[in-house]
Design a protein around this nucleic acid. Structure first.
Lengths: 253, 253
DNA sequence: AAGATATATTTTGCATGCAATGTCTAAAAC
DNA sequence: GTTTTAGACATTGCATGCAAAATATATCTT
């Protein structure tokens, strides 16, 4: 556990503020306002803002401060697509290199636990929560285990955008059991991808991964479109923009 | 032209210092040293260091300052590969969407000018310089025109690593005419890629792009390995690490 | 003499303050 | 009534300074 400095906490705090929609998109966000909100000095606020600028959450105009960046649904869908492509690359590399025993056990373990959840009977909120965590583990685990630094870095860059992380799954309805088909499809996808990797079929693994991501991206897109007018996602005057909102708000992350 | 603030200049300046090897890899680099070297206050130095941390050029240990990150040849080769993959994605997207007239003219213009250089007779240093600029334009132009924000962002993230940018081409020798075959191969590749895009052959365009990048990556790798012991790339005690060095040093950027 | 502890020095982390630039407001000119 | 311009106000950009943490140095104990 690496020690946290004040900046890290401030940055995290500001990020959450942005995701939760505390500032409106396109709105100018001043050091003073941020400092006050976070209860820190302007310097720290400025540092945090600089960090979030580099994350792509804030836009900076020199001498004119920062504005919060807004994302169109297309941008988010595009980002999800790119995430899928990156994961496809990871799958191919893993297939080409072949699993180590440790990797094989690791991924098998993830898959087994998530399968167990679906076998266990009714899908509860907690179950589903755990399932999405395992999903996140699997996806980012493949990126990590591919062993290419640049791939990891590109991935975290893309995944920083709101709603893009694999942990964020937009489900149809409140009743968890209704999401069973969605989960079972994903589960099958995962199984096939791992099988392809084990069979050292790089291209096939990549294709499967791409398809898998594309499909879950389409899911998100549909649900997002449906939710665009709802209270959680504020639509903006003058465009198909949505404000940032925290994953917890509009999904079962 | 967006106005430059002091931070931008400081960051740029520090980046160049790092690339030119002013600080040794793994070395702790203190605010004071940086501030003095850049001739700015410690605050500004700290801000610049924060920016370069986000770029992946510096590593930060909380409460213990920054160290300069070093890159292994494998990391750089890996990054070049990922860059190629991203460009392949761009090619596919462009093929799927089809060129607009403007895009068609733009890319045709780039290709024509670089072809003209090769037709013109002897390859001079200036010629080659111009050619690499056009190469950069073509590669990053495809990323840009693909119209996917996340793709652009992933690209700039990857391309920030030393030696990874398409502008950096490692040539065999000092005599520019000797690099003609390398350039002509690349030129043919570019032509084929654009043709595939025009023919709306997405998968083919992507394959060609990948191959093209892979090949030029291999080129870089060979030349890098050869140069690893030379004065421009300092090898490090204890590993196959190379220090950062400015593109201008070891290539004809 | 080697290790441990205490002290001194360096370095980071952060807040405050001031000058420069940008933005807003209001009055004046047309 | 619209546009221009001058001044007040707010905000950013950056340097300095101080407290806390970390590192180096010296002293003490065994």
């Amino acid at each position: 556990m690496t020690k946290q400095t004040g900046l890290d906490k401030a940055t995290q705090s500001l990020r959450e503020s942005l995701f939760s929609g505390a500032f409106h998109p396109e709105e100018r966000v001043g050091e003073h306002a941020v400092a006050e909100r976070l209860g820190v000095s302007r310097t720290l606020a400025r540092l945090a803002m600089g960090a979030l600028e580099r994350e792509g959450l804030l836009l900076r105009s020199p001498r004119r401060g920062f504005t919060v960046r807004s994302f169109s649904i297309d941008e988010i869908v595009g980002a999800i697509e790119i995430r899928g492509e990156l994961e496809a690359i990871a799958a191919r590399k893993l297939a080409e290199a072949g699993f180590t025993e440790e990797q094989d056990r690791y991924f098998a373990g993830l898959l087994e636990e998530s399968a167990a959840i679906l076998r266990a009977g009714t899908v509860t909120l907690d179950n589903r929560q755990r399932w999405t965590e395992l999903n996140e583990e699997l996806h980012s685990g493949m990126i990590r285990e591919a062993g290419v630094t640049a791939l990891r870095e590109a991935f975290v860059q893309v995944v920083r955008l709101p709603l893009v992380a694999p942990r964020v799954i937009v489900f149809d309805t409140g009743d968890p059991e209704y999401s069973r088909p969605q989960l079972e499809t994903a589960q099958r996808d995962h199984q096939r991808i791992l099988d392809a990797i084990r069979a050292r079929q790089g291209t096939r693994a990549a294709e499967l991964m791409r398809d898998h991501s594309l499909r879950s991206g389409e899911n998100k897109k549909l649900n997002l479109k449906r939710m665009q007018d709802s209270a959680t996602l504020r639509s903006l005057p003058g465009g198909p923009l949505i404000s940032l909102s925290t994953p917890e708000d509009e999904s079962c992350s």
